[in-house]
Simulated assay, not measured.
Amino acid sequence: MTVTASIGIEADRFDLGRALAADDGDVRVELAQFVPIDGGLVPYCWVDAGTVDEREAFERAVRSDDRIAAFARLGTAPERFLYRIEWSTAVNNDDGGFLAALRDHDVLVERAVSTAGSAAWTFRLRALDREALGRFQRTCEDHGVAFTVRRITHGPAETTDRYGLTDKQREALVLAFDEGYFEVPREVSLTELADHVGISRQAYTRRLQRALRSYLTETGIFELRGS
Rank of each mutant, 00 (worst) to 15 (best):
F58N: 07
E54A: 03
W46T: 06
A57P: 01
E59W: 01
E59L: 03
S88K: 00
V47Q: 08
F81Q: 11
T76A: 10
A69I: 03
T76G: 12
E86H: 09
W87S: 06
F71Y: 13
F81N: 10
F81C: 06
E86L: 09
G50C: 05
R80H: 15
A69E: 15
R55E: 12
V47F: 04
D66R: 15
D65N: 14
A90M: 01
A49G: 05
L74C: 04
F81T: 14
R63W: 00
T51A: 01
R84F: 00
R84K: 11
R80G: 02
S88M: 01
A49V: 00
D53F: 03
W46C: 07
D66A: 15
V62G: 06
A77M: 11
T51D: 04
R55W: 07
T51Q: 02
I68H: 09
W87P: 10
D65A: 12
R55M: 11
A72K: 02
E86N: 05
G50P: 04
R60Q: 14
A77K: 13
T76C: 00
V47H: 05
R84S: 03
V91G: 01
R80Y: 11
A90S: 09
R55V: 01
L74K: 02
A69R: 13
R84Q: 14
V47D: 09
R73T: 03
R63N: 11
R84H: 08
R60M: 12
A49H: 02
